[in-house]
Computed example of a mutant assay.
Amino acid sequence: MIRAQIILIALFALTFGFTFGQDKEPTEPEDTELYEPVPPQVVPGKHGAAPSDAIVLFDGTNLNEWISVADSTEANWHLNEDGSMTVKDQTGDIRTKRNFGSVQLHIEWKSPKEVKGKGQSRANSGVFLQGRYEVQVLDNNGNDTYVNGQVGSIYKQSIPLAMASVPSGEWNTYDIIFHAPEFSRGGNIVKPATMTVLHNGVLIQDNFELEGPTEYRGWPKYKTHGKAPIILQDHRDNSRVSYRNIWVRELD
């Protein structure tokens, strides 16, 4: 008898829109207004400059935030009078001294105005999040290559939604939202890394879920890791790519 009554009450509730274990529908506007937690105030930078809560990784004055990937010595790239730095061929990749997890990264780059090379040998570099996950830098203006390795690709994993480069020799911007992967205590992947990329303000990667590190050969495979540096690539083919105005906001 009691069971039958419970069933009847449940049917009545479902019929007339009642739910169990939940608050009733708010009836006043203030019932759905929240006043905490209060978000921190951030002063935005103008024209791509670093906001007030950012870590400035390169402002054109020095390479103090960067070291060589090969041997952790002082970064040996060219520091230019215009506030940029240029890859010094055959000196190797450089990385940040700091390690990062999930970040918002702003970086500006340009290929040389004087065009040399073709395919992957024309102004090739790359921005590696956590030293493993590459957004390709390449001069693709009138220069076809494999599309999962063209400018704006997440290398060998995701073709960009658009090719949004400015003319060769002019400054490009990448704004990257990167969420680091999460691993179990046993080292298994729990939550893959994701990446969103805007190239000159155009969405070219939309919350792409990475399959693992971006590999030149073979399939991507996750291996457990923690925070790690941002790397800029010396492709070792006289790429002459320049960078400026690099800053990051930690999202952890």
Rank of each mutant, 00 (worst) to 15 (best):
A4N: 07
A4E: 14
I6L: 15
F12G: 12
F12Q: 14
F16C: 13
G17I: 13
G17P: 15
G21E: 13
D23G: 03
E25H: 09
E28L: 11
T32N: 10
E36Y: 07
Q41D: 06
V42R: 03
G48I: 04
P51D: 10
A54W: 11
V56T: 12
F58N: 01
D59E: 11
D59T: 06
G60C: 02
L63I: 03
E65D: 08
W66F: 02
A70R: 13
S72N: 14
N76S: 14
E81H: 09
S84T: 10
T86L: 02
Q90V: 05
G92R: 07
R98I: 01
F100L: 00
S111W: 11
E114C: 00
G117L: 00
Q120Y: 03
V127D: 10
V127R: 02
F128G: 00
G131F: 00
E134M: 04
E134D: 08
L138G: 04
D144C: 01
T145N: 09
Y146L: 11
V147K: 15
Q157I: 03
S165P: 01
P167Q: 05
S168P: 02
N172K: 08
N172Q: 15
Y174P: 00
D175N: 12
D175H: 13
A180Q: 15
P181W: 14
E182L: 13
S184R: 12
S184P: 03
R185T: 12
V190F: 02
V190E: 15
A193N: 09
M195N: 04
V197A: 01
V197K: 00
N200F: 06
E209I: 14
L210Q: 15
L210S: 12
G212N: 10
G212Q: 10
P213K: 00
T214P: 00
K223F: 09
K227R: 12
I230D: 08
L232T: 10
R240A: 14
V241T: 12
I246T: 00
L251R: 04
